[in-house]
Design a protein around this nucleic acid. Structure first.
Lengths: 211, 211
DNA sequence: ACCTGAACACCGTTCAAGT
DNA sequence: ACCTGAACACCGTTCAAGT
């Protein structure tokens, strides 16, 4: 005769997420999560292998939510405007879920198949914008699209994580700094997208400097 | 009659740093640190208030080391070249000390006066380069220098932390992507630095889009 | 199948006692 | 002043037992 289930995996993950958001990734115990869904800590182990797996599930939820918000933020028309709108949505997401954002980039997290694909998928809604910006109609130029994405995306992550950790200490408006950064990068990318030779020359130059 | 000291604060911090680099910020216990310097865990509390204070001391060491390496990487001549060289030094530092780098941007760290100033000082060696790049000889234009620094610096942090966490999954060379990002941003900044009106127009445009 | 209390091997930290 | 063992209140996790 099986014991009737008092809760569900979904409820457990939701409870854990709430605790993460309130007190951070280290701010809850298995006992806390269990109590939040009306069971005892050892019972969690019939559903999750260990604490890290619960955290990994919470992390995946955050990545999926970010993906939805980036997709929703995408506007029609000029690709640079669409990317700027998505950049603002990205920052807004991080500021709305500071603890969750920290979890998403925690190096100690588990490396699951599902987590890797959730993370990769989250930024997918921005790729058409980059393709339109730098490759024009040439949708097959995947390498150029990827290079462009890898300028703005790191800026976004770096800016918001520095902002969340309080690293901007020298004054000045951060909204303005963010807008300035996004505009500068998009202008730089648009320029390299419209002049292939300019871009080739610049890349060769960079390599010369590096080696 | 005092007990003779078996160790020093400096040795304790060095031992903790070694453990952090080997197993991460959560990978050592007070017992481990104490054993590494030949004492017992409770003795640490006559020197440090708690574990987080040891970690904070280790973190400060990393910030000071980064500052030294950025200062050393600075080259004479073209400011963009100097900044590119510092960008490479920044990335090399993060890849040489991945666990330490994670500690430096850990949101859970203590907020000490000394830590805040060590962090702020670490990026100071790049400021003259930004000033030369965007403000020309006008050393007093601090706001423009700061705006420029807040484009490249977040890119650097974002790129290396995404790289360390394994976030770049779509293939392509990361060395090339890094160089491309640095070159794109520096070109964008140099352009805004040489044409004040262009920059003013862009900033007003950004604000219009944001609000 | 799912839940439980008891137990295990840890943790950071406190404290009274030693020199 | 610095060090120590013992103790406290926790952890995550395991396990045998209950239904």
């Amino acid at each position: 005769m099986p014991s009737p289930a008092k809760t569900t995996d979904t409820q457990i993950i939701a409870a854990a997420r709430k605790l993460v958001e309130r007190r951070g990734r280290d701010g809850f115990s298995m006992k806390d999560v269990a109590a939040a869904v009306g069971i005892r800590a050892p019972s969690l182990y019939s559903r999750f292998a260990h604490r890290a797996q619960i955290l990994a599930s919470v992390e995946i939820e955050y990545w999926r939510q970010l993906e939805r918000e980036l997709a929703r933020a995408r506007t029609a028309g000029d690709p640079a405007d669409a990317l700027a709108a998505q950049a603002r949505a990205y920052r807004a997401f991080a500021k709305a879920h500071p603890q969750g954002y920290g979890l998403m980039f925690d190096a100690r997290a588990e490396r699951t198949e599902e987590g890797t694909s959730a993370r990769a998928g989250a930024l997918a809604p921005t790729l058409p914008g980059f393709a339109a910006l730098v490759a024009g109609g040439d949708a097959g130029d995947h390498a150029r699209t990827l290079l462009a994405a890898r300028v703005l995306t790191p800026f976004l992550h770096g800016f918001v994580s520095m902002e969340l950790v309080g690293a901007f200490r020298l004054g000045g408006g951060l909204d303005e700094a963010f807008e300035y950064g996004v505009a500068t990068i998009l202008a730089g990318l648009r320029e390299t997208g419209s002049h292939r030779t300019t871009r080739r020359r610049r890349r060769r130059h960079s390599r010369d400097v590096a080696h």
